[in-house]
């Protein structure tokens, strides 16, 4: 198993409660938390994979916190861990001293271009695909990171050891398992792999149902 965030297939969570179309932020502070997280990220001191891992490392707080509480907590942790802020500044001991990173501040007039530019993760570098559409593959087992003990990975535990079929190759993408830990981009092919529900669950709902998971080449072997 990996961490608390890896909940695919878990039992006991109760019903899904749909919420109305049109509501973007239920409370004002939700939007503020999202915006603050994006603005802090724009300082360039961490990447998307590091920020996902910071949320996953919240431990028991991950379960206790609502969605945007996770975001704001991980942002605060990243700011201190990366030396942007001193922990004492979070308790109210802030100074008005100009910060060395202030020149990287996201300006209001730059927001639109920053959001529309995005951050593509496809790369020309890395190995060629070794699996073809239609080919049977096996998912690595166990599912936890091969690179860092307890580290970030995008291989969900419920897929470990399962046999599926490659639907398509998405090209080479940055490997989050490396990128979240300062180990470079290490791009490799990502595949959409289809698994029969009966391969994943003891009591599948329907014999023809499938789950498709995007998986990196190093998560897979030929079946």
């Amino acid at each position: 198993m990996t961490r608390v965030h890896d909940m695919g297939g878990r039992f006991g969570d109760g019903p899904v409660i749909p919420d109305p179309e049109g509501e973007v932020f239920h409370d004002d502070w939700h939007g503020r938390a999202l915006a603050l997280t994006l603005a802090a990220g724009a300082l360039g001191q961490w990447n998307l994979d590091i920020s996902r891992h910071a949320r996953e490392r919240l431990g028991p707080d991950y379960n206790r916190f609502s969605y945007y509480e996770k975001w704001i907590a991980a942002t605060a942790d990243l700011l201190v861990e990366n030396g942007v802020l001193d922990a004492s500044e979070l308790t109210g001991d802030a100074t008005d001293a100009p910060h060395p990173l202030a020149a990287r501040k996201l300006a209001a007039e730059a927001v639109s271009s920053a959001l529309s530019r995005g951050g593509p993760v496809d790369r020309d570098a890395g190995p060629a695909p070794i699996f073809q559409p239609g080919q049977a593959v096996l998912v690595r087992r166990p599912a936890d990171s091969q690179l860092v003990e307890g580290g970030h990975t995008r291989l969900p535990a419920y897929a470990a050891g399962a046999r599926g079929k490659v639907l398509r190759c998405h090209g080479n993408h940055i490997l989050p398992d490396a990128h979240a830990h300062g180990l470079g981009e290490a791009p490799e092919p990502v595949y959409a792999v289809a698994f029969p529900a009966s391969e994943l669950w003891a009591h599948p709902e329907h014999p023809r149902d499938e789950v498709v998971i995007d998986l990196w080449q190093s998560y897979l072997t030929a079946a």
């Binding site: 998405h170 329907h206 149902d209 499938e210 498709v212 998971i213």
Partner: peptide, 11 residues
């Protein structure tokens, strides 16, 4: 049939 897509990558 239901096909569920688990968005585990940046797709």
């Amino acid at each position: 049939a239901v096909r569920v897509w688990d968005s585990t990558a940046e797709v």
